[in-house]
Design a binder for these strands. Structure first.
Lengths: 143, 143
DNA sequence: TTTAATGGGTCAATCATATTGACACAATAA
DNA sequence: TTATTGTGTCAATATGATTGACCCATTAAA
């Protein structure tokens, strides 16, 4: 009777997840570092990019950090004009956040780098592998 | 002509990698937190576990952090008797590090949690998916 | 055998990022 | 008018990381 726990396969999978994730985030990290930005900024760019005109509160909830922790990187992105805010017309308390053109360009560059990497990987692995990989990751994500 | 860059597939893959990785590390993080440990400790336990009797310098190289950054968590693991060190017989300057029995138990518990999660995931995804996933992740890791 | 290099450890100063708590201000809702 | 909401900021504190300067003991080289 074989205990499937800690099989060679699983031990390799653990290793692969660590290494794969690192390899996946490495390019973006380098691109960000050039501008003095980090993953916190990236997360903001990402969520603002995918949630146009969302409020600061929305962003706080998405990032699950404190108001004070958000303050610094968000202010930097605003002053670098990568993100802009305007008051909501129906409620002037609310600031709606969106990417500026250059913010969009940066976000796109970060996403493109990762997207290109994935293209290379899936091309090398073959089309069936891509579907299976998605299936596995979807299950893992929702667990 | 379709630009495969930033296809829906790829955008989903990026999202899945983030979410999947978070889900993958969540259990271990919780287990560690209970003992007042964090990912730094986990990394040390991991590398010491897989590199029995390695030196401090080996560990430093593997973790790619400064001597001073290693100092605190390693000292904690030593004082908690999860890691032990003994001088090398051929060179008394070198400290060889290894897990104690309870260090091994903790490391195994962390690994088991991840391994179990992967078992569940792969079981649900089917056997072919597992192989494909490994293929993709191997390529990604080595890129 | 004196001297230099190596492995390991620590102190100090500093930086970055995060936290909680306490407020302040303007705008909206009750 | 008063209370609540959305946003922003100050202060104190905690953690984890950095670089730089050393120290000790041991081993290697001169």
């Amino acid at each position: 009777m074989i205990d499937p726990l800690n099989s060679k396969q699983n031990l390799e999978a653990i290793e692969l997840l660590y290494r794969g994730y690192r390899s996946f985030t490495a390019q973006a990290d380098r691109l960000l570092e050039k501008r003095g930005l980090n993953r916190a900024h990236h997360r903001i760019l990402y969520f603002v990019g995918r949630n146009r005109d969302g409020s600061v509160a929305d962003l706080l909830e998405a990032l699950a950090i404190s108001k004070q922790a958000l303050n610094t990187p968000l202010r930097q992105l605003l002053s670098m004009e990568l993100v802009e805010s305007k008051r909501a017309s129906h409620d002037a308390r609310i600031k709606m956040l969106r990417l500026t053109p250059s913010g969009k360009r940066l976000e796109a560059r970060l996403t493109d780098a990762q997207s290109e990497l994935l293209n290379t990987v899936f091309e090398e692995a073959g089309p069936n592998a891509e579907d299976s990989w998605h299936t596995v990751m979807r299950i893992l994500s929702d667990t």
